[in-house]
C-alpha cells in the first residue's frame, strides 16, 4: 500500500511535466486546429535561449520573462513567415512544414549550443519538499506554475474580447471574418501564445530532464497522450490528463513485470489509443456538435 502511494505521488511529480506540455499542445490545437509536431522543439529552442541568457549572467526571473516574450514573438513570426502564406495548402502539407520546422530547430540548436547535455537551474531549488523524498521543491513549483497558467488561460478565453475572437476564429473562420474578426492575426496570436507556453514548459522541464536538442522528443509524446486523454479542446482536461499519464506510467513501471519497465512509453501510447477508441472526445473534451 505504501509503495502504491509512493508511486502515485512520484507519478504526480513526473505528471507535472506532461501536464505543462499538454497544456501547450491544447493551446495551439485550439488556435489552429492542428497538432503541432514541432512544438517540443520550439520549447527546446526557447529553453536554450533562457540558458544562454542565464549563462550571460541575467537573473533567472528576468531571463524567464525575456524568454517568454522572445518565444511569443518567435511564434508569431513563424506563423507569418511560414504557415500564413500556405494557409490554403492541404493539411498534409502543413504536417510536412511542421516536420521541416522541427529538423531546422533541432539542427540549429545543436549547431549553436552543441549536443552535450547541460544542466538548467531551478528557481525553486531541488531540495525535497517538507523533507519527503517523493516530491522535490522544483516539482511542487512546477505544478504551481502550471496551475497559475491554466487559470490565467481560462480567464483569458472566457472573459476577454480577444479570447472570444480567438475561439470564434477557430470555430468558424469564414463567419468570424464576417463579424470583423481578423482571423489570420488570431492564428498568429495563437502561435505566439503556444510558443510562450511551450517556453514555460521547457524551462520547467529542463531542470529535471536536462537540456539538449532532443530533450523534448519523448516528452512531447507524453504531452500528446495527456492532451488526448483530457480532450484536445479542454485546457483543464489536458493538465489533468498529463498528471494521469504520469501516474499510470509510474504504476505500470512498478507493478507490471518486465514489460512495465522496458515499455513505459508504449504503455503511455496504449492509453492514447484506448482512450481514442473508447471515448474519442477525451475524458473532458467537448464532443463536436453539428447538425447535418
Amino acid at each position: 500500500m505504501e509503495l502504491l502511494i509512493q508511486q502515485v505521488v512520484a507519478g504526480i511529480a513526473t505528471g507535472a511535466i506532461y501536464a505543462c506540455v499538454a497544456l501547450a499542445v491544447v493551446m495551439i490545437y485550439t488556435a489552429i486546429g492542428h497538432l503541432n509536431f514541432a512544438q517540443g522543439e520550439m520549447a527546446m529552442f526557447s529553453t536554450f535561449i533562457a540558458w544562454q541568457l542565464i549563462t550571460w549572467g541575467v537573473p533567472y526571473w528576468v531571463a524567464f520573462a525575456l524568454t517568454v516574450a522572445i518565444s511569443f514573438v518567435g511564434g508569431v513570426v513563424i506563423e507569418r513567415l511560414i504557415f500564413h502564406p500556405l494557409a490554403n495548402a492541404p493539411i498534409l502539407s502543413h504536417v510536412v512544414l511542421f516536420i521541416a520546422l522541427l529538423t531546422i530547430l533541432t539542427s540549429t540548436a545543436g549547431f549553436i549550443w552543441d549536443f552535450s547535455i547541460k544542466t538548467f537551474p531551478s528557481p525553486f531549488g531541488s531540495a525535497p519538499l517538507f523533507g519527503s523524498s517523493l516530491i522535490s521543491a522544483h516539482q511542487a513549483g512546477m505544478m504551481g506554475i502550471t496551475l497559475v497558467l491554466l487559470i490565467a488561460l481560462f480567464f483569458f478565453f472566457r472573459f476577454t474580447r480577444v479570447g472570444l475572437a480567438m475561439r470564434a476564429a477557430a470555430d468558424n473562420p469564414v463567419s468570424a471574418r464576417l463579424v470583423g474578426v481578423r482571423v489570420s492575426w488570431m492564428i498568429a496570436l495563437g502561435w505566439g501564445m503556444a510558443a510562450a507556453i511551450g517556453a514555460v514548459a521547457g524551462m520547467l522541464v529542463a531542470p529535471v530532464v536536462f537540456l539538449e536538442p532532443n530533450m523534448m522528443l519523448g516528452i512531447l509524446v507524453y504531452g500528446f497522450a495527456g492532451a488526448v486523454l483530457g480532450g484536445l479542446t479542454s485546457p483543464g482536461g489536458a493538465v489533468l490528463g498529463g498528471f494521469l499519464v504520469g501516474i499510470i506510467e509510474n504504476l505500470a513501471g512498478t507493478f507490471i513485470p518486465v514489460i512495465g519497465g522496458e515499455l513505459k512509453l508504449t504503455i503511455a501510447l496504449c492509453i492514447i489509443v484506448l482512450v481514442l477508441v473508447l471515448k474519442p472526445g477525451g475524458l473532458f473534451g467537448r464532443a463536436t456538435v453539428q447538425r447535418v
Binding site: 511560414i82 495548402a89 512544414l97 540549429t108 549547431f111
Partner: peptide, 22 residues
C-alpha cells in the same frame, strides 16, 4: 555537416512553397 538538418528542413519548406500539392 553541422547544419545538415537545418538545410534538409529548408529544402523541404522550399519545396512546399514551390509546390504545395507535391
Amino acid at each position: 555537416k553541422g547544419l545538415s538538418g537545418a538545410f534538409y528542413g529548408i529544402i523541404l519548406m522550399g519545396l512546399m512553397f514551390l509546390m504545395p500539392a507535391g
